[in-house]
Amino acid sequence: MHPAFQGLITIALGVGGCVAYFYFANQALDRVLFPARGPNAGRNINRANMIRPWVFLFPALFVLCLYLAYPVVETLRLSLTDRDAGDAFVGLANYQQMASEPKFWEAIRNNILWLIVVPAASTALGLLAAQLTDRIAWGNIAKSLIFMPMAISFVGAAVIWRLIYDVRPDEADQIGLLNAIVTALGGDAQAWLTIPFWNNFFLMIVLIWIQTGFAMVILSAALRGIPEETIEAAIVDGAGPLRIFFSIKVPQIYPTIIVVWTTITLLVLKIFDIVFAMTNGQWETQVLANYMYDKLFRANDWGVGSAAAMVIMVLVTPILIWNVRQVRREMR
């Protein structure tokens, strides 16, 4: 059977199954378990209404617990056990082994670099683009084009930028844009992705290129939400455009800037595809997620791989707690 056909059947089964589940579960609840008639009609309606939310929630909760909550616990367990020794508990041995590997510290260093550079650069460029495009007639077209890389996969972006960083032997014409510019200015062509330390930045540019549009879209909506009176008052008081931007606008959209920053930070913590496709961690460009992938699927070392995954988890935890507290405050 062709997989595409199998896919169609799965859609039909999945959607049909969901509809049938919700419909029949409701029927069972109202007709069979707690019928709204007879001597206990009132009590039955109340009981049915107490259970119904859980009927609606059950499939989603089941999937969430199985695919996201359970793995957190299971990964923690795996990181504390040794698979080769029959899942024996080994305490922190996996973490110790990981800490003794230079590649791990290289990944940590690079992840920290990514964390500093990418969210800051994307947010700043996004803010600049939002502020500029909001003021001109063709701003929406400009926005749409800056936003476009968002639709491109990390792998596609990796190919796009590999073409820009491409290098040819000295005597040949450079077909990579960056080297063409460098040689036109009298410099020597470089294999950009193999220059340790600086190559990290050439990889980061790819993500900045993708994420600036995201930052721009959200910040532009926030900028338009600023009450005009505050800006008019500033103009009356004689503030210049720069002053208005930094002293009036930015403080008012500060919460949104934080949101954009944390969202990109989360993405950076999990960054994998770009490094995997462009350098695969060679030339000192390793990052945590790729290190973890190496350990899990190349070295087949589940213990250390899970320990690396737990490091990523620990790094996202502050944002997790902050988000949860924000939401709980909002709901009060």
């Binding site: 695919y67 990964t75 989360l266 913590l269 999990k270 994998f272 899990l296 990523i312 939401v327």
Partner: peptide
């Protein structure tokens, strides 16, 4: 709150389990 927390759980943790 539970769902908001799961929003940020890295899917890397889910691979092996």
């Amino acid at each position: 709150a539970f769902i908001v927390a799961l929003l940020v759980v890295p899917l890397q943790l889910a691979l092996i389990p």
